[in-house]
């Protein structure tokens, strides 16, 4: 009886251990890919059209989803904010609430989550498929380094696109909030903007938001690239990798957001 229990526990522990080792191994492999991508990124700047093409597929193609979501998020924020603020008689502060929520948190975070779902999955699936159909092998046999030719341009495209998308998200969100607050609810327009301007700091809020989105850009793109590279060369392998991209990116973004926010609030 006791033997069986000990057996089960030891099997459980060794299972956990194996998983941990696999995770750590993947973390290391991901970090290696990241460093290689940086080392071999000369090509993606020398032949910038390679990167431009990827900016088109990751950034431009995500524009619509970002703008539409931002608009709705901004409008909902204004509705909810007004509902609470008017109880305290400070409904003019609605502009501040909408702007700070967007610029500090929702802009970078929601953009990164949408990016992981829209562009990240596309990157993973594309690279996984290139691996499955031996395109990466073929490239290597032609003496073309897939990290320089495939990984680096996509990496830089993601890092460049993310802050642009996040800035658009915040701006469109503020406009959505304005539309609800001023014409719809009837908050004073002057108070809406002036309170906002008095309380949103360029360095502490806007620049920090941009820093966040750059970090998220690095994380999301790198995760998507690594999962594609690491995918087993089968249809099933690629589909699992795509799912993992979304799950891991989302968790990483939320975790990083906490860490970054605590740093930014302390410093």
């Amino acid at each position: 009886m006791i033997n069986i229990i000990i057996n089960k526990i030891s099997r459980l522990l060794s299972g956990i251990g194996h998983r941990m080792i696999a995770r750590i191994w993947r973390l290391g492999a991901g970090a290696r890919l990241f460093i290689l991508a940086i080392i071999y990124s000369g090509e993606s700047f020398k032949r910038f059209h390679l990167t431009l093409r990827e900016i088109y597929f990751t950034g431009v193609m995500s524009l619509l989803i970002i703008i539409v979501s931002a608009f709705f998020v901004g409008m909902v924020l204004a509705l909810q904010g007004y509902n609470t603020l008017q109880k305290y008689g400070s409904s003019e502060a609605i502009g501040v609430l909408v702007a700070l929520a967007l610029v500090r948190e929702l802009g970078p975070v929601v953009t990164a989550l949408l990016f992981a779902g829209r562009a990240g999955t596309a990157i993973t699936a594309e690279i996984g498929l290139m691996k499955t159909t031996e395109q990466l092998s073929a490239m290597e046999m032609m003496a073309v380094n897939p990290i320089a030719r495939v990984v680096a341009p996509r990496f830089w495209a993601g890092v460049i696109s993310m802050p642009i998308l996040a800035a658009l998200f915040s701006m469109v969100g503020v406009l959505g909030g304005y539309l609800v607050a001023v014409p719809l609810i009837g908050v004073d327009e002057g108070a809406f903007w002036s309170q906002m301007q008095a309380n949103v700091d360029v360095r502490a809020d806007i620049i920090n938001g941009v820093i966040k989105s750059v970090v998220f850009g690095v994380a999301c793109t790198m995760i998507a690239l690594f999962e594609g590279f690491d995918a087993p060369p089968t249809a099933e392998g690629v589909s699992h990798a795509t799912t993992r991209t979304v799950v891991i990116s989302s968790l990483t973004v939320l975790g990083l957001d906490f860490v970054l926010t605590s740093f930014m609030l302390v410093v």
Partner: peptide
């Protein structure tokens, strides 16, 4: 070297 892959491996 040049190599023709068994399944072509064209860049899609």
């Amino acid at each position: 070297m040049g190599m023709l892959f068994q399944h072509g491996a064209l860049f899609t």
